[in-house]
Simulated assay, not measured.
Amino acid sequence: MSYIDLVNRFWTIDSEFSFSHLEVHLYFKLLEINNRLGWKEKFSVSNGRLCALIGTTQKNLIKARQRLIDKEVIGYKKGTTREAGVYYFPYHMKKETNLESNVKKESNLESNLESNLGSNPGNNLGNINKTRLDKDKDIIYIPAPAIEKVILLWNQFQISKIPDNREKTENSILDALRRHGEENLLRAIRNYAEIVGGREYILSTRWQLSTFMESHVEKFLDEESAKAMYRMKGGPDGRSEKDSRDSWKERFKNPAGTHTDERDLEELLIKSETGS
């Protein structure tokens, strides 16, 4: 059972029971901790440490943990005064009983990691921990923060709705993380959110997250370049320029029975504005 399988199962259960923000945060923090430990079947972490990591009180932690236990997304054995409690992922243990032995084969992991991520020394994954690979099943194990930070930031800006089936979205994020790294992706999303939501910019297209990851990240890596590309010539007010943009699009509509994507129109408009 891969990280993505665990996440997909979590969101499937969430669609029925609607976990709170704290419950979501706790679940993905436990995934992150277990990833750092090398994907153990069981691992220990104290209440005090978890409270500090997710910014909550012990009372709220216990309440959130119990709901995750009740919905069978985590398992927990209470600790003692000297030993921290023990956590595990029931579904993970049932499906992947041989995972721990696989991830400890460091020499195989290194070669598998290189073949999956490429041997380019400049390939930076930012703050992503080493990806784990189940050699027998070719399953890539992705640390929780990398993908979830991207999704949470996208949702925070309310750019576009992420489909319920998140497999395509997560795979596109993974590929973009390999190419650009976590920090660059988060910066690109912030820049895009500012531009697509700003009245002084001509861009109004709100792409799906997967489309943004696959085709548009590069445009928004540098804030000044992105703003210069999409800034209206009419200044911050931009009303006359906005009107001219709409009329320009109207003139370039395709004949009946054909179709041009909104993205194509935006790109043509930018070329006409910049003279390129």
Rank of each mutant, 00 (worst) to 15 (best):
R82D: 14
I62T: 07
I147K: 14
K130M: 15
K63Q: 11
F17N: 10
E182A: 04
N123C: 11
S247P: 08
S160Y: 12
G55Y: 14
D14R: 02
W39S: 10
P145I: 11
K219F: 00
L50D: 02
Q156H: 13
A52G: 09
S276E: 15
N191G: 08
S247A: 15
W154A: 02
I147Y: 04
V24E: 12
D222F: 14
T258Y: 00
N120M: 06
L268T: 01
E114F: 13
Y88S: 02
N102T: 04
S119W: 15
A228R: 00
P163W: 07
I195S: 01
D138V: 03
N120E: 10
E218A: 13
Y141K: 02
D175R: 13
A226L: 06
S20T: 15
A144G: 03
G48R: 12
Q58D: 09
N60F: 12
G122F: 15
I142Q: 08
N165L: 11
P145M: 11
R67E: 04
E96D: 15
K249W: 11
Y141E: 05
Y141F: 05
R231L: 01
G234A: 08
Q158T: 11
N129Q: 12
K40L: 05
G257A: 01
G75I: 02
H21T: 04
L174E: 01
G238Y: 12
R65T: 00
C51L: 06
L186N: 09
Y91G: 03
A146M: 05
S20A: 10
I139G: 12
H21V: 11
G118S: 13
K227E: 00
N8E: 14
K105A: 11
G234Y: 10
W11R: 11
I140R: 07
V150H: 11
G234D: 11
V217M: 08
T274A: 00
F43M: 05
Y88R: 02
K149S: 09
S247C: 10
K42C: 01
T81S: 13
P163F: 04
F43R: 09
H216L: 07
A256F: 00
F157P: 04
E32F: 00
V217D: 03
K249Q: 10
F252G: 03
S20Q: 11
L61E: 07
R49E: 14
